[in-house]
Design a binder for these strands. Structure first.
Lengths: 197, 197
DNA sequence: TGCTCCATACCGACCGGTTAGTCTGCCGAG
DNA sequence: CTCGGCAGACTAACCGGTCGGTATGGAGCA
């Protein structure tokens, strides 16, 4: 039996990352001790520092995972062969569903940015910016084509929508009355309606 | 000369609260030590624990102050003698301006909720809920009158708007191209346009 | 096949440093 | 004299990170 798995068959690094994600979302980064993480993962500190350089390295991995996922999905929707209205709507709805599917990541994302080391913070911000710009390009495309109103700067429109996405982790509860798809549909509708010329 | 003031003439409790607000927003609650707060306020720990019961008492005071302010303002706008469209627009724009005027409070608000003790957290959530409901009532009133679309549940509309308000502290910079009033105008426009029948 | 040897994976006691909160006592105003 | 308002040394509890040590499975060789 390899030392890298326990009964669950899941490798140690992934167990650590999963435990850290849950705990960071639950109690916050600073309130989660390294000891608690390793206990939740069923290992000891030696294992954690064998795979990760530091506690904030662990946090950085959470960010990297989310950013990669969101960027891939946006690229797929934005690059589709469809009218800009549909592409924006699909992209806007998808980010909502993806966020709800990973609510822990979402609560960590904005709440714990300032816990990253300066260099990692810079890196995350840069990736985040690319994402924002890709989204903004969609809005601007629709504005040039005349299918979206130009009354509001595209930047603000994007921040308006992401604000609501960001806010999801504050109010959305899986046991509530709305499914992720329903919420996504409504929020995408609000965005598109706000953009009607 | 009373011991409660220094050269600035501002009483010690208020100095402590102001220093704490700035530092909590800057570095986060956990990263701010009590020592740093008292140094910034020009006093010592003795003074802090003379006026406040604990560190999280200080945080609670920040929340209480913000909640009181926002509730008062919303009550004024919602209760005005004007068509519901104007009342909602004014209220929506005002919360944006007020939030920008107190960006420190805003970044603390959502980021540090989970640092409050359970009872204080409960109290803050209850107040927050009252605020949410007052706002929602405005939307529902417009929906009943037929001036707002009923396509989206009022609850979601409110969360949509507050999401963008919440998000302000992430992207708004005072030295940016837009004044608080301009941002408020745009965000209120987006809300009202999304609500057009 | 059996044996040696070593890289990898992990353990857990330990360390330096920090923190929230306490407590004794001073000091000036009334 | 007394009492609110504060000073600041102190403590007990952690916390992130280190480091010497241990176990294991496979590569290489006889």
């Amino acid at each position: 039996m390899a030392r890298t798995t326990d009964g669950s068959g899941i490798p140690v690094p992934q167990r650590l990352l999963a435990a850290a994600t849950r705990l960071f979302a639950e109690r916050g980064y600073d309130r989660t001790s390294v000891q608690e993480i390793v206990e939740a993962a069923g290992v000891t500190k030696g294992a954690l520092y064998h795979y990760f350089g530091s506690k904030d390295d662990l946090l950085h991995e959470v960010y990297a995972r989310v950013l990669r996922l969101q960027q891939e999905r946006l690229d797929a929707f934005a690059g589709a062969d469809a009218p800009v209205e549909k592409r924006l709507r699909d992209a806007a709805a998808d980010v909502v569903v993806t966020t709800i599917d990973n609510l822990d990541d979402a609560s960590i994302f904005f709440r714990s940015m300032h816990h990253l080391s300066p260099e990692k913070d810079k890196q995350v911000r840069a990736e985040r910016r690319r994402y924002h710009e890709r989204f903004r390009a969609l809005v601007e495309e629709g504005q040039r084509e005349g299918v979206f109103s130009t009354a509001t700067p595209a930047d603000l429109v994007v921040d308006y929508h992401f604000g609501s996405v960001h806010h999801l982790s504050t109010w959305y509860r899986p046991d509530g009355p709305l499914t992720p798809q329903q919420v996504a549909g409504h929020l995408a509708d609000l965005l598109l309606r706000a953009l009607r010329p």
